[in-house]
């Protein structure tokens, strides 16, 4: 019964990731893409626990899931800080150009 539950949750997770992949592929701005990547990364941590439940090795896969959640959070924060800084630099450049003209 645990196997059935894990198969249900894992298959539905894969199925519901398809719209997020569409958003990564099409997404008008870079921020949409980062948002979708962030959601998929969080769900991958859940998927690791599901795989552990399927293989009867939850005690091992839980540690992978912790590491993956940490890395995912770091990646999303770092990319948004990077985009924030480049946007601020662009604003400063535009202001200086306007002042010269």
């Amino acid at each position: 019964m645990i196997d059935w539950f894990a198969m249900l949750v894992g298959g539905s997770l894969f199925l519901f990731m398809v719209p997020l992949l569409y958003r990564i592929w099409v997404g008008p701005t870079a921020y949409d893409r980062i948002l979708a990547v962030n959601v998929i990364g969080t769900k991958t941590a859940v998927l690791l626990v599901v795989i552990g439940a399927l293989f009867d090795r939850v005690h091992m896969f839980v540690d992978f899931a912790i590491a993956y959640a940490l890395l995912n959070f770091l990646a999303s924060v770092v990319v948004s800080r990077y985009l924030n800084r480049t946007a601020a630099e662009r604003n400063v450049e535009e202001k200086t150009k306007g002042a010269r003209a």
Partner: peptide, 28 residues
């Protein structure tokens, strides 16, 4: 350990959403 992941996500998911929103808003 699983409840530790839940606590961690409870703390970090709103944080990353906030940082991303701020980056997009300051990008005009």
């Amino acid at each position: 350990k699983i409840m530790g992941i839940v606590l961690f996500i409870y703390l970090t998911s709103p944080t990353s959403t906030h940082v991303l929103m701020k980056a997009a808003f300051e990008d005009n």
